[in-house]
Design a protein around this nucleic acid. Structure first.
Length: 435
RNA sequence: UCCUCAGUAGCUCAACGGUAGAGCAUUCGGCUGUUAACCGAAGGGUUGUAGGUUCGAAUCCUACCUGAGGAGCCA
């Protein structure tokens, strides 16, 4: 019996008779020779089956096999320049697990398909090379993020998905029933809980799904997306910016190091990623507004950037840029005002280059109990819902802060994608909940 | 919620108001080195839905449905 190997390991089994188990990716035939291409999740293997080297029924079965049929192939591995992966298998035997019916063939052919069709078949689309590459880059991004924080003294403390109250405006939260007529909401950020965790552990991070019921229908929005959020006690804005910068550089470096093949499959221009090094350009909101106006934007001081504004700003640089000190009025209630200019807040956004926009938002949180209470009132928030949050400022309050990075936007940028919908296996979007 | 565009074969798309077509996929046949193989043949259609204009509608008009891109919205 032949040893079972994965296709990615083929190089170590040259001239051996082995078995691979997978699915038929494509089949080309030319009379008395057929070339089944098998995928097993780790790579593609071009097999070669000759009519006069195999039993009649084996050859005929292979010749008529349909796309995505499951099968095991036994054969000898050989280095072959003409084969897609550089190695080829001379078929000695085949076991067909399931032949896909000709009456209902695999719908995703090697030709072009539209967005709607592919999204309806997302559960099958994941089998194609491009999607495979994206998901593997995503995996590397997530691993790198975790490694970065794990290696820099952060403790992983995950925050709840169900939350009892709306922290900032109920319109963007998904409401769910929570026993006996109570309402709960799906979290849109772990930040408030992160602050409690930071007061307990010093430096913490959480990583999990977040939910936003915004009716946004753009290439940058999902209703369910994954976010990593570090939070640090005794950290000021400069420290928060330094950590964000260092983490982004590390993550991009790890993808370049370990996912070259995938980036090549995606036809990503890696020279653009090679330029992602510290220090990132830093710019105040004030200067950003002046810059935008000089480039023809209608933006006025006091309003947030539009999508076009982000593009104008980021196209001037080859690296991500950090914009800080936004007007306090357009930021969340907990954002620490600049002591020297209370009209601006000590927050920072990191904008990815090439028009990918905001991938990180964060800043310093209010640590003064009086100011926090004032802000809760000004924002007409229910004080009783924030009792525990206010407690954090009563028992040994310290300056602190952190940020959140959206994984899907980060992956879309690293992969150079048109839309974030491809960066997660089963995207949840406005008007799309299936499959 | 608003704006723009689009819905024709399983898929990607053609078809000036006048006989609905091609490539891929599927089936059959041919080919011993194919690279989204190639060559030949076959099957495959209530043109998103409902109305309207017209001798005649895939094509023009109205409404609705679905999708896409964008705006608004969005630590």
């Amino acid at each position: 019996m032949s040893e079972r190997i994965t296709i990615s390991d083929a190089a170590r089994h040259v001239d051996e008779s082995v078995e691979i188990a997978g699915w038929l990716y494509n089949l080309r035939k030319s009379g008395k020779i057929v070339f089944p291409i098998v995928r097993d999740g780790t790579g593609l293997m071009q097999c070669v089956a000759l009519k006069n080297a195999l039993p009649e029924e084996t050859f005929e079965a292979l010749k008529h096999l349909t796309q995505e049929s499951s099968l095991k192939v036994r054969g000898k591995i050989r280095a072959e320049a003409r084969a897609p992966g550089g190695y080829e298998m001379d078929v000695e035997g085949v076991e067909i697990i399931q032949k896909v019916s000709e009456a209902d063939p695999y719908p995703i052919t090697p030709k072009e398909h539209g967005v709607e069709f592919l999204m309806d078949h997302r559960h099958l689309w994941l089998r194609s090379q491009r999607q495979h590459a994206i998901i593997r880059v995503r995996h590397e991004v997530i691993r790198a993020v975790r490694d970065y924080f794990d290696n820099h003294g952060f403790t992983l403390v995950d925050t709840p998905i169900f939350t009892p109250a709306a922290c900032e405006g109920t319109t963007t939260l998904f409401e769910v029933n929570y026993f006996d007529d109570d309402k709960a909401y799906l979290t849109q950020s772990g930040q408030l809980y992160n602050e409690a965790n930071a007061m307990a552990f010093g430096k913490v991070y959480c990583f999990g799904p977040t939910f936003r019921a915004e009716k946004s229908k753009t290439r940058r929005h999902l209703t369910e997306f994954w976010m990593v959020e570090p939070e640090m006690a005794y950290a000021d804005l400069d420290e928060i910016k330094r950590v964000a910068e260092e983490m982004v550089v590390y993550v991009v470096g790890r993808v370049l190091e370990n996912r070259r093949e995938e980036l090549k499959t995606l036809e990503r221009d890696t020279s653009k990623l090679e330029k992602v090094a510290a220090p990132f350009p830093r710019m105040s909101y004030d200067d950003a507004v002046k810059n935008l106006q000089a480039h023809g934007s209608e933006i006025q001081w006091g309003s947030d950037f539009g999508g076009a504004d982000e593009t104008i700003l980021t196209e001037q640089f080859e690296k991500p840029i950090m914009v800080d000190r936004f007007p306090t009025a357009i930021k969340a209630f907990y954002m620490q005002p600049d002591p020297e200019r209370p009209e601006v807040a000590l927050g920072v956004d990191v904008l990815a280059p090439e028009g990918y926009g905001e991938i990180i938002g964060g800043g310093q949180r209010i640590h003064d109990p009086e100011l926090l209470l004032k802000r809760i009132e000004e924002h007409h928030l229910p004080k009783e819902a924030f009792d525990w949050y206010i407690d954090l400022r009563k028992y040994g309050t310290v300056p602190h802060g952190g940020f959140g990075m959206g994984i899907e936007r980060c992956v879309a940028w690293v992969c150079g994608l048109e839309h974030v919908r491809e960066t997660i296996a089963f995207p949840r979007m406005l008007y799309r909940l299936k499959p």
